[in-house]
Nucleic acid binder design. Structure first.
Lengths: 268, 268
DNA sequence: TATAAAGCCTTACGTAGCTGGAGGTGCAAG
DNA sequence: CTTGCACCTCCAGCTACGTAAGGCTTTATA
């Protein structure tokens, strides 16, 4: 191609940084259709096509799909639509960003845990990760049940405190898997439970404990199962009921009623 | 399904929040394959499958592809790989986030412009957007050419200042399209050019101007065309060369040599 | 001018992570 | 007995291209 301002696909691709295949594709879907040499069928791009392509790339950058762009390009006065859809795309990007932030925070926490704990049982690890990723859902659940105070208290916890609780939790899980099978009244078992509960209490702080204690738990009962589905325990069912029994024993003897995952109810 | 801890797809889907179709898909690709009723072929999910699914969802959340997850699930001790790949995924997320941040900043700027300017010629608008999105590439270009000082100066400009320059630029473009065709020596044309150059000078500040003036422009000449491709002007070629002529006239009479998009060279 | 190399054409399949529909079977209630 | 629901499998489609085969056209070199 010797002529000025006429480019073959290769040249055009080189000039714009868009791959040949992509240019073919844009031609195919009717997004950017250059002239074609009548006999050979070779595509002939012009300077105008550069400008058009820049529009396309810009709109893609703003978040539009190629289909949307095709429609936008055909409407001459589309600054109006632009204004509306830009806000929409902005919100979409915000959500996307939030998701990414959460994932990054989760990864950071997991890396920290792996560093400090060495190997971690995968069931436990995933229970934690699942907890992180459903933090939002848990918040919503709490807000729906007028537990905004509790939620707010939890949100204020620093990453450092969260890590500490994670570690306590891992410790608990390890010991559960070790002690599993021993009778509830075994002193080792009871000590393990006490240690864990104390750590939890410390994390939550007195205010939150008080708030929780004031709640009418019975009222929430039907929905607790729903929450259970959201935040799974890392234990097998057998381990879980063993742990519940041990906790029940502890509470009976300490007059303390609180259970992290709600009560196990016999299912019908 | 009456039995305890046995779920049909529908029930399982309900319980986990994962669509039936997706569960079918996970079965198909060998990611989560429940038992099947021998005669009817209906899938039978168990409590264990819930745990497995939670692992899957967690790994997805961390950025793994389904394929990677399949392989991970088959290896029993995969906390090792985890540690390595987590860092990798973290970096990927960082990049993704950066891209999103840029898009969001661009959208904000465009919305602001639309609000303040009303309707904007689309060619101009996209020239600006393109500029925003290639800011990084421009920075790289400058760094490669030992223009780090210039770049640093530009980076310090506030969003507010950028908007102001955008507006000046839009104004220029409007006037160019209005005045196009008039002779270079027309006082209106010369005034337009002077206004624009003064605004640019104000934006850049004296220090930057000095830095730019000290450069050996001739040395860079061959690469300027490359930069031109990155930052296109919003004008047609005719407008562009008309503008260049008018600028040249201005500079000749003002002893001022500076051209925003580099000199147009005759192409061979 | 002959031929080789580069560049171009179309066609078509592959990708990830699903979603949707068609057409058929199994099971319980009215 | 029929209605309806939940389930099955198989096939198609979505985005935005990447990759590759097999056959032209253009360009460069001998």
């Amino acid at each position: 191609m010797q002529e000025q301002n006429k480019y073959s696909v290769g040249e055009f691709s080189e000039k714009t940084g868009i791959s040949i295949r992509t240019l073919h594709y844009y031609d195919e879907i009717g997004l950017l259709q250059p002239e074609k040499h009548p006999s050979s069928g070779h595509r002939i791009y012009t300077h105008q096509d550069i400008l058009t392509l820049q529009k396309i790339i810009s709109l893609k950058f703003l978040g539009y799909s190629l289909n949307e762009i095709i429609h936008l390009m055909h409407e001459p006065r589309f600054t109006v639509d632009l204004n509306e859809t830009l806000t929409f795309h902005f919100q979409a990007l915000e959500k996307e960003k939030e998701r990414i932030d959460q994932s990054m925070a989760a990864i950071k926490r997991v890396i920290r845990l792996l560093e400090e704990e060495g190997e971690v049982d995968s069931a436990i690890l995933f229970s934690l990760i699942h907890g992180m990723q459903t933090e939002n859902i848990q918040k919503e659940w709490m807000e729906q049940h007028q537990l905004s105070d509790v939620m707010e208290g939890l949100s204020k916890k620093t990453e450092e405190e969260k890590i500490t609780l994670d570690q306590t939790f891992i410790q608990l899980a390890k010991e559960v898997k070790q002690l599993y099978g021993k009778p509830a009244e075994d002193p080792e078992v009871q000590e393990m439970i006490q240690t864990y509960l104390e750590a939890s209490l410390e994390f939550l702080g007195e205010d939150l404990i008080q708030t929780l204690a004031d709640l009418n738990v019975a009222e929430l009962e039907p929905d607790i199962e729903e929450l259970e589905n959201i935040s799974p325990s890392p234990f097998t069912e057998a381990e879980q009921s063993w742990l519940n029994a041990a906790m029940e024993y502890y509470m009976k003897h300490q007059d303390f009623k609180w259970n992290f995952w709600g009560d196990e109810k016999p299912r019908s």
